[in-house]
Amino acid sequence: MKKYRNFNFICGAVLTGFCLLIVLTGLIRTPYDTTAMSVADRLSAPSFAHWMGCDNYGRDILSRVMEGMRNTVWIALLTVAIGTLSGVVIGAVCGYFGGLLDDILMRVNDVLFSFPSILLALVIISLLGTGSLNVTLALGIAFIPSFARIVRSEVKKQSALEYVESARLMGAGHLRVIFVHILPNILPVLLSSVMIGFNNAVLAEAGLSYLGVGVQPPQASLGRMLSEAQSYLFTAPWYAIFPGLMIVLMVLGFALLAEGMTEA
């Protein structure tokens, strides 16, 4: 059993490390300018000059995959940060104090929760407009309900334990009890939901960009590359394969990592 857990964890760590390496390399430099076009290289197959081939404008796919992954990771991180921070605050207040405020906030939460998060994000984007900043905001808001719910139930569970009562008896104020005493105890649960949330955010961002409402051209995005590659699926399959593969690797790596950590 222990070996199995390590296997999950190690695979996840290797895949995530590989993806991070690509992102970090892309931060320093990409093999080609991500927007440089060259007519001669249109839809050319993978070669030593262009490891992943070129797209329909003759742009280097590897360079664009690097940039796309960077955008995706960035958006996913911010999304999860927005969702987690707001979710923790809302969930902790609801779970700790309970009462009318809890009822109201949780019913609002239920309404938000009943929309699929992509749909909710689409509604918010249609209000705010497209672009990577708005996508981040929209996804972040769409992610709040699930985090709030998890944190609320955990805080409620912990509040009933005696150590919380004994902290209150020491004269600790509500905020101190929530953030100093209770929060560290829900971190394991929170951490695994953050990791799952990150994966969902990667997929949601790719989905929104595929639909054309996410990252806007000329900036590269994995989802957008997939949708553009549809027309060339048989003439230039590498155009679709590499961005798709990178999404799969990123999500799979992180999921395995999360799995390995929660089983620890």
């Binding site: 005696e162 150590y163 009562e165 004994s166 008896l169 004269g171 104020g173 005493h181 560290p184 105890n185």
Partner: peptide, 24 residues
């Protein structure tokens, strides 16, 4: 009340297993 609690009035509980914060 909070001025008194922990400073003038203190309490110990039945279950020392759960009365301490496991992460501190």
């Amino acid at each position: 009340l909070r001025e008194l609690q922990g400073d003038e009035i203190c309490m110990i509980f039945q279950e020392p297993m759960t009365a301490l914060n496991p992460t501190m």
